[in-house]
């Protein structure tokens, strides 16, 4: 009875996140058509690539007039984090055979965050599949709506869509920089132990886009990594972000579109290795 109840709440949370994140596909659809992609190409990106950050990065380079190499390079680098999510999720989901290839398509920021936030593996699986399904359906429906709508409405700058893209990236970045003061989650030892296992995925990808769901902000789902280790990570992330932003800014006037982003990532990673 109690189990059923909490399973239902897992489903409800997952649907909430799915709807909130999925709605944002409108902005992608509009931005993509404005960049010069057709409605079909736009929809195929959402259906097949299905990873928002990469999709925005790719159409951003296209609209800036960048080359195929820089667009693809930036997009795939950003998509590489999904590989790590998949490695984290594989033992949790225990998928085999063909189901692995379905689960792979759903392995993104939000579904990973919702799954690893659950301490019960059964609930983690429910969270993953429901979040994946909800986002997949919404994201693709709204992508199509945004693409068709943008075509009908004309210049997207008139609707402020040019400000939406940097704002969205900032919203994705912020949770990785934020030093949280919440600590109660580690008060109980068992909790902390499980959290350490979840850390690999959660630390690397705080569930940025899951924050809109009110339910996701409750309880342990939004549990930040507490303590000195977390603060150290977030501080380092802040310097990394500042360095990357400055490098990109300096390179915009002197390199082709797409290069500033790739160069910033490369330089920062190099600096991280040397330290």
């Amino acid at each position: 009875m109690v189990l059923e109840e909490s399973r239902r709440s897992v489903v409800r949370d997952s649907l909430g996140v799915g709807l909130a994140v999925g709605a944002y596909g409108v902005a992608f659809g509009a931005a993509s058509v404005a960049a010069g992609l057709s409605v079909l190409q736009t929809s195929l990106l959402s259906l097949l690539a299905f990873t928002g950050g990469t999709q925005f990065a790719v159409v951003g380079v296209v609209s800036g007039g960048g080359t195929l190499g820089t667009a693809l390079g930036g997009g795939l680098l950003l998509g590489a984090r999904n590989t790590l999510y998949a490695m984290r999720l594989a033992p949790l989901l225990r998928v085999r055979g063909l189901r692995r290839f379905v689960a792979a398509q759903g392995t993104i920021d939000e579904s990973t965050a919702m799954a690893v936030a659950r301490h019960d593996p059964a609930h983690a699986r429910v969270a993953f599949w429901w979040t994946f399904t909800a986002i997949y359906v919404c994201w693709n429906a709204t992508t199509l709506a945004g693409a068709v709508g943008a075509r009908a409405l004309g210049n997207p700058a008139k609707f402020g869509l040019d400000a939406v893209v940097p704002a969205a990236f900032l919203a994705l970045l912020a949770p990785r920089l934020r030093i949280s003061d919440q600590r109660e989650k580690t008060a109980d030892g068992r909790h902390r132990k499980l959290d350490r296992r979840a850390m690999s995925a959660r630390a690397k990808s705080p569930p940025a886009a899951t924050r809109p769901a009110p339910a996701a902000r409750r309880g342990s789902q939004d549990a930040p990594l507490a303590g000195a280790a977390e603060r150290h990570i977030r501080r380092m992330n802040q310097s990394i972000a500042a360095g990357a932003a400055l490098i990109a800014l300096a390179l915009i006037p002197v390199t082709p579109p797409g290069v500033p982003v790739l160069a910033a990532a490369a330089a920062v990673l190099l600096a991280g290795r040397l330290r």
């Binding site: 984090r81 893209v165 990109a248 800014l249 920062v268």
Partner: peptide, 29 residues
């Protein structure tokens, strides 16, 4: 090393993307 790479890469990419999307227009600020 893998853990660090995965932590840092999205941070660097997203920060650079914020700047580029906010102030770049092709090769111009």
């Amino acid at each position: 090393q893998v853990r660090r790479l995965v932590e840092l890469l999205p941070v660097a990419l997203l920060a650079a993307l914020v700047v580029v999307e906010a102030v770049a227009s092709g090769r111009h600020l």
